[in-house]
Design a protein around this nucleic acid. Structure first.
Lengths: 109, 109
DNA sequence: CAGGCATATAACCAGTAAGGCATATTAACT
DNA sequence: AGTTAATATGCCTTACTGGTTATATGCCTG
């Protein structure tokens, strides 16, 4: 129910996503250890993320493995899109001073 | 001080950005009329957006013109980037089954 | 210089959500 | 079944923030 941006507004939540992105699946306890957050806190955040479609959960021998579901972020990407064309236009106007602030840029589609 | 995602988490704020994106500059009163929000409310949001570097303000004959500053969104784009590669990879691995399963966002598992 | 717009700011209220602690649930193992 | 490990949930408190109303500021214009 809460929209994607609100979900991402929580720093801890982004940390969780980052962690999951780099590890292809983690147990709650791993996240707790990794991020130094309390277990209930992590569980709560995971729930929000799951509801938002940003992570998936699957039962495992000892615990539940959470994995990133990056496709959930496509909506953000989509929202960003019209703005993106905007700033590329700008870029061209201003003479790439923008690029210098950002090493490797993967060109948008 | 508040991070970009928190700023974007506010629906009204996104509306303002959208409006500015499509109009190349608007006065506060225009935004008020356009979005049906109260003037102080709009002003507050604009301040947040300005602080976040998402809009610029310039004095005008009768009022202040606010313009979109899309480059401010590059950080979001940058954050998204590693995830983006992720989902393109996935897509390619799984043979687009993701796309088909995502007409309107499936219920939670 | 007075009056009026346009906008910002201040003070305040209310909803909401994060975090902590305790407890419930579930699952494996013995 | 009893114990333990892993995770989820409920309750409570607290902090933050959006929204409103009222007021201040600044700028034109007459």
């Amino acid at each position: 129910m809460p929209d994607l941006f609100s979900v991402l507004a929580e720093p801890s939540r982004r940390l969780i996503l980052d962690a999951l992105r780099e590890s292809e699946g983690l147990l709650v306890k791993d996240l707790v250890a990794l991020l130094g957050l309390s277990q209930p806190n992590v569980s709560k955040h995971l729930r929000v993320l799951r509801t938002a479609g940003l992570v998936t959960e699957s039962p495992e021998r000892q615990g539940r493995r959470y994995r990133l579901r990056a496709e959930g972020l496509r909506d953000v990407d989509a929202w960003l899109d019209p703005y993106r064309t905007f700033w590329t236009a700008r870029l061209h106007d201003l003479g790439d001073h923008l690029d210098s602030t950002r090493p490797q840029e993967g060109p948008r589609q």
